[in-house]
């Protein structure tokens, strides 16, 4: 066990370095691109994406981890951007709804949401789609599984039947329950 004194004299390479509370430079890799921004450590990944990087696709619903509208991927796993501090995502790979399409070619899940009319107001849709693509990759896309494994994404318009239909369609098109992403 190091004593506090020992810490001051022999800090570990990346430890005891106190950053903030004022703005610090943070490097984030978002949709394959390195972005530098100056933010306070208390800034959430959600606010960093929307307010600093002008990536408005990720939505702020409840801002307390209850609705799933802010679902993004960090290191290819779906997480909630509202409960994630942006500074904690350095050296991680962030993917947002803006990173899903291949140029002008929509991701199959985006196409399926359009075809299946899987939204009404559309506010929860980016989070639904990020969650849905991850769901297929996680392998829980059986007909009786989708409901449970999409339960972290609320839709107040209650477009759930169409959302599930869109997910089933992509699952069936891609053969089995695993989709490339």
């Amino acid at each position: 066990m190091k004593s506090p004194q020992a810490l001051q004299t022999t800090p570990a390479p990346d430890s005891a370095v106190v950053r903030g509370p004022d703005e610090v430079e943070v490097r984030l890799r978002v949709n394959g691109e390195i972005r530098r921004l100056s933010i306070e450590p208390r800034v959430s990944l959600l606010d960093a994406l929307r307010d600093r990087l002008d990536l408005h696709g990720t939505k702020k619903g409840c801002n307390q981890g209850a609705c799933g509208a802010c679902t993004v991927w960090v290191d290819r796993r779906r997480v909630l951007a509202c409960l994630t501090l942006a500074i904690s995502c350095e050296n991680r790979e962030i993917t947002t709804i803006e990173g899903l399409a291949d140029g002008d070619v929509l991701h199959p899940m985006q196409e399926a949401f359009l075809d299946a009319d899987a939204f009404q107001c559309g506010y929860c849709t980016p989070g639904q789609i990020m969650s849905a693509v991850a769901l297929l990759a996680e392998g829980h896309a059986g007909d009786d599984e989708i409901k449970e494994w999409m339960s972290g994404n609320l839709c107040r318009c209650a477009a759930y039947p169409h959302i599930r239909a869109a997910i089933r369609r992509v699952r069936d098109e891609q053969g089995g329950d695993r989709a490339a992403h």
Binding site: S15, V18, R19, G20, P21, D22, P41, S88
Partner: peptide, 8 residues
């Protein structure tokens, strides 16, 4: 406001 450290 908070400050932040990352340790390994």
């Amino acid at each position: 406001p908070i400050s932040y450290s990352r340790v390994s």
